[in-house]
């Protein structure tokens, strides 16, 4: 892989806090290595801003290896940038060439209010999990791990759904700002396993109810979420969630839902 350096123009969303209006600010960065990650390019920019006695750009990031789900930039119209199945922290600068202009915005959704610049508040996701995204088992109650065999296919599928990192790219990418992919991944993860079976109906109902309460849009099966999900969570999860919901709807047993 050929290494090279580039100069770039960045248009970055600046917003002081939740209440104030934001605007784009233009920055120039020079001599960026093609080996850098996108966030390292932002580090360079921020160092430059500190040196100029200006305020650096606030952005969320933590593990920088694509798993914590903290990073969240909307880059040139794409959640987590243009690479398939990739978080912003794993996007590398060899994607860009000298002279490019890159527009960077925060996740935009009313349910994800901006805290500052590119940082948004995603606590709505925690509250959705609180509504039922778990198996009610207290510590110490478990039977032997091999007591219940689980078909490999189901286990694998459950794992594929559980790979969700809760970054919110699905909401950011969805024209309706719907959180269905996130909710469906959790519902699928648990409903595919025998351990999650007893609560599957109330779980689907309650999580959807909470999702609505948080003000996310409704799913119209557009599929932009799937296209942008860094972990490849499939729309099949949404179909499964819908099935779970229908099952719960026709079941008298889910009276205690909502």
């Amino acid at each position: 892989m050929e290494h090279y350096h580039m100069n770039l123009t960045l248009k970055v969303w600046k917003q002081k806090n939740k209440n104030e209006k934001g605007r784009f600010e233009t920055y120039q960065v020079k001599n960026i290595s093609s080996e850098m990650s996108f966030l390292e390019m932002f580090d360079v920019l921020n160092e430059q801003l500190v040196a100029e006695n200006k305020e650096p750009i606030a952005f969320d990031h933590d593990c920088r290896e694509g798993i914590c789900g903290m990073c969240s930039m909307y880059i040139n119209g794409r959640a987590h940038g243009p690479w398939h199945h990739t978080t912003t922290c794993q996007l590398h600068m060899r994607e860009y060439k000298d002279g490019d202009t890159i527009v960077v915005e925060p996740w935009r959704a009313n349910s994800f209010p901006v805290i500052k610049d590119l940082v948004v508040d995603r606590q709505a996701f925690d509250r959705i999990i609180q509504a039922g995204g778990y198996v009610s088992v207290n510590t110490g109650n478990a039977v032997d791990a091999n007591a219940i065999p689980i078909e490999k296919h189901d286990a694998d599928e459950s794992f594929a759904s559980a790979a969700c990192i809760g970054c919110g790219a699905c909401v950011a990418a969805c024209p309706n700002a719907s959180a269905m992919l996130f909710v469906s991944a959790k519902v699928s993860h648990l409903s595919l396993l025998p351990q999650g079976d007893p609560e599957r109906k109330t779980r689907a109902m309650n999580m959807i109810h909470q999702m609505d309460k948080e003000g996310f849009g409704s799913c119209t099966n557009i599929g932009a979420c799937e296209a942008e999900c860094p972990k490849g969570i499939s729309l099949e999860n949404i179909a499964r969630l819908n099935r779970e919901y229908l099952g719960a709807m026709f079941d008298g047993g889910s009276q205690n839902a909502i």
């Binding site: 510590t139 110490g140 039977v143 791990a145 091999n146 219940i148 065999p149 490999k152 286990a155 993860h189």
Partner: peptide, 22 residues
């Protein structure tokens, strides 16, 4: 050993063999 039991009960999707065991 209890940790594995607890995690499986919570729905942690560990890798499994074709026989359905861990």
């Amino acid at each position: 050993a209890n940790i594995i039991d607890q995690c499986v009960a919570q729905g942690v999707p560990f890798a499994r063999e074709y026989g359905g065991l861990l």
